[in-house]
Design a protein around this nucleic acid. Sequence first.
DNA 1: GAGAATTTTGCAACCGGTTGCAAATGGTGG
DNA 2: CCACCATTTGCAACCGGTTGCAAAATTCTC
Lengths: 334, 334
Amino acid sequence: MRVTLKHVAELAGVSTSAVSRAFTEGASVSDATRQKVHLAAERLGYQPNALASGLTTGRTKLIGLISNNFHNPIFLEVFDRFTRGLQEKRLRPLVLNLTEDIGRQSSVQMLRQYSVDGVIVASSTLAPDFALAFRDAGLPVVHAFGRWRAEPEIDVVGIDNVACGALAARTLIARGYRRIAFLGGPREATSTQDRLLGFLLEAEKNSDIEISHSFAHAYAFEAGRQEMKRILTGGPAEAYFCGDDVLSIGAISALHDAGYRVPEDVGVVGLNDMEMARWGSIDLTTIHQPLGPIIEASIDRVSALVDGVVRPPVSQLFTCHLVERGTLRRSKPS
Amino acid sequence: MRVTLKHVAELAGVSTSAVSRAFTEGASVSDATRQKVHLAAERLGYQPNALASGLTTGRTKLIGLISNNFHNPIFLEVFDRFTRGLQEKRLRPLVLNLTEDIGRQSSVQMLRQYSVDGVIVASSTLAPDFALAFRDAGLPVVHAFGRWRAEPEIDVVGIDNVACGALAARTLIARGYRRIAFLGGPREATSTQDRLLGFLLEAEKNSDIEISHSFAHAYAFEAGRQEMKRILTGGPAEAYFCGDDVLSIGAISALHDAGYRVPEDVGVVGLNDMEMARWGSIDLTTIHQPLGPIIEASIDRVSALVDGVVRPPVSQLFTCHLVERGTLRRSKPS
DNA sequence: GAGAATTTTGCAACCGGTTGCAAATGGTGG
DNA sequence: CCACCATTTGCAACCGGTTGCAAAATTCTC
């Protein structure tokens, strides 16, 4: 049998209310009783039942963590940071792995059934209104890696994908590449669309640049490889901005298979700067995304919402920068 | 305000008990009331509160999922499968990211506070008695990727690490490698110890084989690279069995840095067969670990325990096999 | 030391469900 | 039509906590 409030109350010789209060910060209890209670609790090995307490207070300290990115290595880092960050705030992540067969409605239901205090949607490939479903259900929600909007309906934390696209284009052009291409992730993903937009806007400023673009069906190695293989039939561009790191690695694999050397024959720049990008055999030049701050901000934001701090929702974007490694030539060939 | 039992009862014109029963499989209700109730529930958008119900039934359908492997890419696959598998059984994973500063006791506490029905410890580097702490706290627990024991105190699901070590040694020897080495993960990990044991037992059967071994401080790229770099000062062995795939990749990176070609100069075989091992630029010969069955079995086992099926705990091991790729020569040089 | 002000305490109702039990209902056979 | 049995239903207590409120205890003031 579990040790409950009642047992502690009995042993300490006080009412259950006293025990409850002894465990509540700032409640009205004398030091004497608080001590008695804690002593008794200690002896019995008592631990408050978070669920029972959640029932009355309306706070479970459970945060729904939703994603559909369980195949991209970057997500391991995302996930590590989210779980750690939540733990530090004494919140518990209830994870939802969004597969094909789970609809918007049923994910809302799953989390509502468990009375989560708030929800973090962590994905750059979900439609923006997916996260909206939670707000509509009355749940505080933050969309991490979501799309920027001037007046968002819910809080968004992420990066400026348009700026990243522009940065990529600027970089390629500055290094003397003339025929450049964007090899994006899934066409439907807002991150893909925005990166492409920025890339095009920036590249088109230069009239002598030849631009092309295409899409892989997912942010995944094999998708990148296949798509690069496909477009290589018409000969490669001089340099590619790939939708993300794992796509880049797949693309490079296809380039190697076709006998091209990177960066000597073809340049590649990715986006994310996942741990693996640093590995010797990969050594990917890429645009760094500040994962730590993004995730910290997401957690901060969701706890603020839970605490009832009502401010209009904002899009919080972090800036990215290029990390120089070995898949892009460093400067214009002379 | 949330819709509760009471609201539904009112609308349907029945008692709350009736509503509760209408939502319980096999409860004593007439079809007529069940219909009325479901209709009313539908209209109000009612969903039972899993936590409240857990309070009385003692079942929350929450499963604690604990790991300390948030830096090994294989864990993304593990994690994907666990969350999916649990979801399919209508169980919810409550994730605990075991960092340095979280002790055995406090992890038990965290999960007990949330009244999880059971716990899955997913790690090959935790001491066997870590999982025991949960059993001692009265929680059903399964140790996935744990160490085999003839008469285990708790359920263990995993692979036969000793056999894997032997398989690796046998393979290397069969291919004519004479000076072979084990580059293991952390010395304290049971998986490391067992793989080494199997490796040594098998290799020592052949008197003409030169065996050596050493350990990386973690199952991680950089750890593998550093350790290989360190041991290379004395010249390489002819082939290495590395503690796992990510370690192998690190080791290969160091070998390349030192000017050795794989597999022409040095052979490498890993263990796990993570997705990435298949990537073109990595193409790692490795021992395949059947993740799917292991995880399925872990989930089955923990739900059986939760359902009170009491059988003595067992060690359930799955066999592994070699996957031929490009980091080990295929046969004896003639 | 009395009275007022303040703090501490316990009672009891409540959060949203479940369930044992007894009463109500319905069906069956004579 | 009644007795009998099976099924369905609602009452009320309970799960493990929290909290408003009034009473009790303590502290302060003069």
